[in-house]
Design a protein around this nucleic acid. Structure first.
Lengths: 126, 126
DNA sequence: ATAAACCTTGGAGTTAACTCCAATGCAAGA
DNA sequence: TCTTGCATTGGAGTTAACTCCAAGGTTTAT
């Protein structure tokens, strides 16, 4: 698969694919005789995985740390599995943060009339 | 309350407070005789609210739209309540996006051994 | 009354994550 | 073979959201 195919298939710009590779978010992709990138299925899966986590809001800096650890422990499968679990845990923390704000909004919405009354009372005192 | 008190109480830098006000994320704060900001309780609540949504990952651009609509419909309380509900809906969508990725990771984790086997099979074929 | 510690502003600098560009080379059709 | 349309690179430009700074005025403690 050349860069254009991957770009279209996974809906990621070619510039972004090259950028991710340059900074080490993707392992180096093989080249053909004329120096063009030739993505294997595994490369494409990796891209898909990075895309999913970027889309879920994980920063590149954080992802880079995981990627480096993941590539380092090439033979320690338990460790690799742990890394996935850790990554999931971080996403769950992000969800919890948002859920807190949802709860806050829900409170505001449910007490909206009351809230407005209080503001009127405040105005009286000014 | 002066800027330093608000900054400490809500754990937001003074620069950020001034920045938010400058771009219109906070309504203009009253000044005392020498031009220093003097935050009312309502100002502080507003800051708290903005902080909560920024913390939940909502962009300033998106928040600005809400703030402008909110300030525009100063007397339309139903509309204001709707805006809060809309904002909550957007946060819930962000949560759903992250949850999808959590599910993807869970799948990877639960099928980890199997996944590794497949990779070995792939290698055989190369 | 003077130093230290505040506040103000406009504007410059920073970081993340792309995005675009120019120069150059390969590839495929008329 | 010539043109059109891909690919490559290094590096410059962009956007978001701060963050810092300098120059100046104010408040507080000694």
């Amino acid at each position: 698969m050349n860069i254009n195919e991957v770009s279209k298939k996974l809906d990621i710009s070619k510039d972004t694919l090259r950028y991710w590779e340059k900074i080490g978010l993707l392992p180096p992709v093989k080249r053909n005789a004329s120096g063009y990138r030739d993505y294997s299925d595994r490369d494409a899966n990796w891209v898909y995985y990075i895309k999913a986590l970027r889309n879920a809001g994980m920063s590149i800096e954080r992802l880079l740390k995981f990627v480096h650890l993941y590539l380092k422990d090439i033979d320690d499968l338990d460790r690799r599995k742990e890394l996935l679990i850790e990554q999931r845990k971080e996403l769950l923390a992000e969800i919890a943060k948002r859920q807190e704000t949802v709860d806050y909004l829900t409170f505001k919405i449910d007490h909206f009339e009351e809230h407005v009354m209080n503001q009127k009372d405040e105005n009286k005192g000014e």
